[in-house]
């Protein structure tokens, strides 16, 4: 199974950094778990509809009304880094 996934590119997709010892352990764990779920191959799934959700709902709409929402100051108060009414983040664009 392990040849199926590249742990580094998976970690990259998930924005996770793995230490060397974590990498070996997780590769092994994931191989085992994916090997285990292979057993689903025994089921004949032809013509079976996928179930994404068990709520018997179609689109749920509400009236388009203006209502009070969360208080801005409370939302921003506990943010790790703010400037005025904004969340501040490190530089996004590298200057070449």
């Amino acid at each position: 199974m392990s040849e199926k996934f590249n742990i580094d590119s998976l970690a990259d997709l998930a924005r996770i950094r793995l230490k060397k010892e974590e990498k070996a352990k997780l590769t092994n764990d994931l191989s085992k778990i994916l090997g285990y779920v292979e057993a689903l191959g025994q089921l004949n799934l032809e013509g079976i509809e996928p179930t994404t959700h068990v709520a018997k709902l179609e689109n749920v709409f509400r009236a388009d009304e203006v209502k009070p929402a969360l208080v801005r100051e409370e939302v921003l108060k506990h943010s790790p880094h703010r400037e005025g009414n904004f969340f501040k983040v490190p530089k996004v664009i590298d200057q070449a």
């Binding site: 689903l40 799934l45 079976i48 996928p50 179930t51």
Partner: peptide, 14 residues
Amino acid sequence: AYYLRGLKARTFFR
């Protein structure tokens, strides 16, 4: 091979 297959198998439980 994984996610869609899982969703289909989920139907059997219902």
